[in-house]
């Protein structure tokens, strides 16, 4: 019984961690809803474009560069961070839209 309880608690803890591993970021009025985000390795950000224009999230941070491509209004894109480090993200079209992501 004790083993079962511990197992259930572990599963619940893992599930909670899995939920926390994804952060939702919206883009509206040429702004991201977050400026700084902390994630664990393997965590992800769900980017939602609630704006009326196309955005393009990308990073040129050495060792962490990526580009999700054009994201039209209404589209959702998930990006997973597989390596630890500090990653600076921008919109390649509207570069004042910036987020700092710390992946631990």
């Amino acid at each position: 019984m004790k083993v079962l309880l511990v197992s259930i608690m572990l599963v619940l803890a893992f599930a909670a961690n899995a939920i926390a591993a994804q952060t939702v970021v919206t883009q509206k009025g040429r702004k991201f809803s977050e400026k700084k985000i902390e994630l664990n390795v393997g965590g992800s950000i769900k980017f939602v474009n609630d704006d009326d224009v196309t955005h393009n999230i990308h990073s040129t941070t050495k060792g962490h560069a990526f580009d999700v491509g054009a994201q039209k209004p209404g589209q959702t894109i998930v990006h997973t961070f597989g390596k630890a480090g500090k990653v600076k993200l921008r919109c390649a079209i509207h570069p004042k839209m910036k987020i700092k992501v710390t992946v631990k």
Binding site: T54, N56, D67, G69, A70, A92, I93
Partner: peptide, 8 residues
């Protein structure tokens, strides 16, 4: 510079 986005 950013090659895969039509709007750029």
């Amino acid at each position: 510079i950013v090659k895969n986005v039509v709007k750029l």
